[in-house]
Nucleic acid binder design. Sequence first.
DNA 1: GTGAAAGCGCTAACAC
DNA 2: GTGTTAGCGCTTTCAC
Lengths: 334, 334
Amino acid sequence: MSATIKDVANEAGLSVATVSRVLNNSANVSEDAAQRVNQAIDKLGYSPNFLGRNLRKRETNVILVIMPTSEHSFYMKIVAGIQKYAQTRGYDVICASSNSTSEIEVRQMNMLFNRTVDGVILLGTQYDADTLNKLSKNYDIALCCEGVDGADVLTVVVDDEQGGYDAAKALIRLGHRKIAFVGANENAVSSSRRRDGFLRAMKEYGITVDPDYIYSGSFEYENGEAAIRYFMSLPEPPTAVFCVSDLLAISAIHGAADLGLKVGKDISIIGFDNITMCEMMLPSVSTIEQPCEKLGEMVVRKLIANITSPAGSKDNRTYTVEHRVILRDSTGSA
Amino acid sequence: MSATIKDVANEAGLSVATVSRVLNNSANVSEDAAQRVNQAIDKLGYSPNFLGRNLRKRETNVILVIMPTSEHSFYMKIVAGIQKYAQTRGYDVICASSNSTSEIEVRQMNMLFNRTVDGVILLGTQYDADTLNKLSKNYDIALCCEGVDGADVLTVVVDDEQGGYDAAKALIRLGHRKIAFVGANENAVSSSRRRDGFLRAMKEYGITVDPDYIYSGSFEYENGEAAIRYFMSLPEPPTAVFCVSDLLAISAIHGAADLGLKVGKDISIIGFDNITMCEMMLPSVSTIEQPCEKLGEMVVRKLIANITSPAGSKDNRTYTVEHRVILRDSTGSA
DNA sequence: GTGAAAGCGCTAACAC
DNA sequence: GTGTTAGCGCTTTCAC
C-alpha cells in the first residue's frame, strides 16, 4: 500500500540505515545522500510509519489528557496550555473525555498500559488515592485542577483554600456579612478546601456563619439554582453567595433572576474558575480566576520531566499556581 | 521493564502463539491453556503492547477528531456522539484542536500519515477542496458540520440552506418584516448556505431585503456585537436578527443590551447550533438546533465503513441530518 | 490444540 | 560516510 523505508532506500540506491539517518537528521550523512533520500521521499510520497518507530524506540512522544467532561471550556483552556508547551518539547497532545464514568476512564487509561501514549494528565479523576499510587509506580501520570487526598502523584493545582479565602474576603469588603457558600460533594477536594478558606476569612473578620448558609450538593449545573431557592426560603436570606464553580454561580444567578432578584444589587454572587461564559453572561460574573494556561504548562512540563527521567527519580510533589480575583457585575456592595 | 507476551508464554509454559490466541480469544485453544495464560497474565500484570500489535495488524482502531477550537461545547457534543458509536465498534476516539491554524492542523494530520490513527474526522477545516481530495484518495477522512465546496469527501452536515430558511420563517411568523442577517466570512460554506435559505424565505414571503441588513464578518465572538451596533445606527433599524451561530447571537444580545434594548421585546435575535449556553443565557436564546449526537454518530459510522472497506469502494457522498427550530426568550412578536 | 518461524517498519549497534 | 543485521512485541501462516 504505502511506501516504506525500504522502498525509499531502493529508490535512492542507498541502505535503509542511511535513509533512517536522514529521517532523524543524525550526523554522518553526506550532502549527496541526503539529497537523494529526500528526492526519493518526495517521489514516493513517503511518510514514516510511527508504529514501527515507536515500537523500536519504546516511546511515542504523545501525551493523553483525560477530562471528566469536555463540555466545559475551562478544561479545554488547560489543554490549550498543555499543548502549547508540549509542542515546544516535541510532544503531541491528544484528549479524551470520560464523561465522569470510571469505566470509560479505565478504558482510556489503556492507552497508557498498552504503550500508545507516554503519559497521562488527569483533569479531575474518578480514581482513589490507592489506585493512583499504584498507577503512578508503573506509569507517568499527573493530576491537574483537582488533587486527591493521600495520592502521592504529581499534582498541579491552584491554592484552593486561599482562593476560597479571597472570594469570601472580596464579598466581606463589599460590606456583606450574611454570606452563603455553595459547594460540591464532600469528596471533591477542591470544593472542601475552598470552603475551608471561606470559613477562615469569615472567622478572621469575626463573622459567625449560619450553618444554614452552607449548602453542599454537586458540581452539576442544577445545584446552583437549588441552593439559591433554599437560601431564599430561609427566614433571613444571605445577601451574598460564593459558589465553588462558575457553572454553579451561573445557575445560581438564574435561580435568583427567576425569584425576581436583581443580581449584583439585591444579591451578590461570585464563582470560581473564570470560564469564558463569565464575561458573556448578563450580568457578567465575578469569580476567582484559575490561570488555565499556566496550570497546563506547569503540569505537562513536570510530566515530561518525569517521562524522560530514570525510573527511580520521579517527582510526585504538588505544585500550586497563582489565582486572581476578578470582580464583575454579579457582585455589588451590600 | 514491563512484561511481554514472551514472558507470559514462559510463565505459562506455552508458546507465544497460544498466548496470542487467548489474548484475541480466537478458537482452538483448550480450557486448560487459557486458564494458565490468564493466570500468568495476572501474575505478571501483563498488558499487551499495542505498538507491536498495531504494527503487525496494520491498523490501530483509533479515530482522530480535529476541531478548529475546543472552546465551543458544540464541537465537544459532536465528539461525544462520535465516541458513543465508535465504542460499540471497538474504536477509540481521540481529539485535538487546531486552534484554526492550518499549521497545527497539518501537524495533527501527521497522525494519519504516520499510521498512528486509522481515520480522521474534521469538524470545520482549513483545507481547500484540492488538498482534501488528494488526502481522501490515500487516507480515510470525513468532514462534519462544515462542508467544503468541490470536495469529494465523505461529509455529514445539516441542511444549512433549509436551516437558514427556517430561521427566517420563524421570525417572519412572529410578525417581523425588518429582518437582518449576520454571517461569517464568505468562504464559510455553512454561513453562506444559511444566508441563501434566509433570502429564499424572505423572497417567498414577498419581503424585500434591505442590503444594509446583510452583515458579513467572521465567526469570532466580537462580530455579533459589531453587527448590532451597525444595524442600530441605520436610519431604519431591523426588529429581528438572524445570526449564523449562537455565539454570534449571544454577542449580539450583549450588544443590544448595551444599547439599552430589551432583547425579545425591542429586538428579536435567533442563533444557530443550540449550544449549552443558549439555555443558560438571560434571556435564553432561540436557535436552530444541530443534532450533535446524530451528526457524530453518522459521520463516524460512515467513516468506519470506509476504513473497513476495500480501497476502491470509498463512499464520499454528503449526508444531511435533520435540524430543529427552538424558540426561547430572545425572540418575540414584532 | 499447539508450536516454530516469518515479518510488520523502524532504529541503532557494529563493522567496514 | 555507509551498509548489514538484530530485534522492538506482536499476529498469523503453516506444520504437526
